Each structure stands twice: as C-alpha cells, then as structure tokens.
Amino acid sequence: MFPDTVAHWWRTMPDDVRRAYSRRASEYVALLGAVADMDPLDASLITRWGTGVVGPILDAGCGPGHWTDHLREQGCEVRGIDLVPEFIARARERFPHASFDEGDLLASSFRDSSFGGVLAWYSLIHMQPGTRRSALEEIARILRPSGALLVGAFLGVQDAALDHAVSPALLCSEQGLASQLESAGFQVDAIHTRSPDGRRPHLAVLAHLL
C-alpha cells in the first residue's frame, strides 16, 4: 500500500511558478500531456527504470499525470504528486485508474523510507540550487535504502538561467547534478545526454540511495 497521504508537496516551487503553470495548464496538457508526445528514448528509459524498482514509486511533480499512468500500465505501484491544482484535476479526469494528490515536498508527511523509487522528471528545474539540495535530501529521506531515483533536466552550464516557456528555469550540467546527488547521499549509476534537433539538450541521471 502507499504511504499516508501528504497534505502538501512542492512548497519549494514559488507561488509565481505555480500560478504560471496554472494559467497555461490546458495548453501544456494539449502539447505535452501524453507519452505519445514524448521522445521514445524517454519512454524507454522511464519504463526500464520503473519496472526495475522494488516497492512503490512516487512521481514527484507529475504534471498532467502521463508518466504516472504509464508506469501504472507497466505494472508499477505508483502515485503522482504536483503542486498545480489544475494538473491534478486534469490527471484525475484523464487517468481515473491512477493515483494523484496535490502536495509540497518540504512540507511532506511521508514517513522515512516510504518509497522504492522516485521519478523527478523535469520537476526540479525551477528550483534554486539551495532549494534543489533540500529537495534531494527530502527525496533521500523518503526513499528506502538502495531506493532508485531518476531525474530529468535541461542540460547546460550548471545553474545557468534558462528562458523557459512557462517560467524561468535553471540548467544542470552532468557533473553539477551528479555532485548534488552525491552530496544528498546518492550514488550515480548512469548519465544520459542528448541534443535533439530543434530542442534543448537533455540530461537524465539514474542514481540509488546509499
């Protein structure tokens, strides 16, 4: 069974970021709200990762819920959490068999070692470096020993500003994100990068809790 429901999840995301996503939720869902809209390499990576996790998975910052439902369809025990009410409402409408909650990471009431895996797919990109460190430390707290983490982010100079379409964001470098993960108690298992035609360079890091 899943851990106890948390009242809030992403306090780390400023209110202006939440409002920005709320205003553009319908547009976001239409453009990026389905696995079919994603790069097949991402779908393959997330599927392999998720089906290898032992125990429940938290999709942290699940947005409109497509990855949560995708993992559910693969047989994973998974729930999605996001700060944006409009995303959660749409996720529940579109994927009624999946589990979704509003929430806030640093105000989490999840018990220690609650999850076997956490997916943080482009959900840390709006956080300042100190807040991101705190988020990774909280993820480490709620993961079981040897629990798995998969992070997706925009690749570039560490913590350089990015003019994101919805709200300002920060880039991550391979070494920069790896160092933050290691400082939070993780061991990096693999790093994937690519530069798709016409799209921003992409970074994915797989790690496990020591």
Rank of each mutant, 00 (worst) to 15 (best):
R133G: 13
A148V: 02
L124D: 12
L136H: 08
I125W: 08
H126M: 05
L143E: 01
S123A: 10
I142K: 02
T131I: 15
G130N: 14
V118I: 14
Y122I: 04
I125P: 07
G130F: 02
P129F: 03
R144L: 05
I139H: 01
R133E: 15
A120C: 12
L149Q: 01
R141G: 05
T131C: 10
S134M: 13
L143W: 01
A135L: 11
G147S: 00
L136Y: 04
W121A: 10
A135M: 09
S123F: 07
E138I: 04
G147P: 00
V118F: 01
L143Y: 00
S146P: 04
P129C: 04
E138R: 10
R144N: 01
S123I: 11
E138P: 03
W121Y: 15
S146H: 03
S123K: 08
P129E: 08
A148R: 11
G130K: 12
R144T: 06
L136E: 10
R141D: 03
T131E: 15
I125A: 02
L136A: 10
Q128K: 15
R132T: 14
A140P: 03
L149W: 03
I142M: 03
S134W: 08
Q128L: 13
A120Y: 08
L136R: 06
R144I: 04
S146D: 11
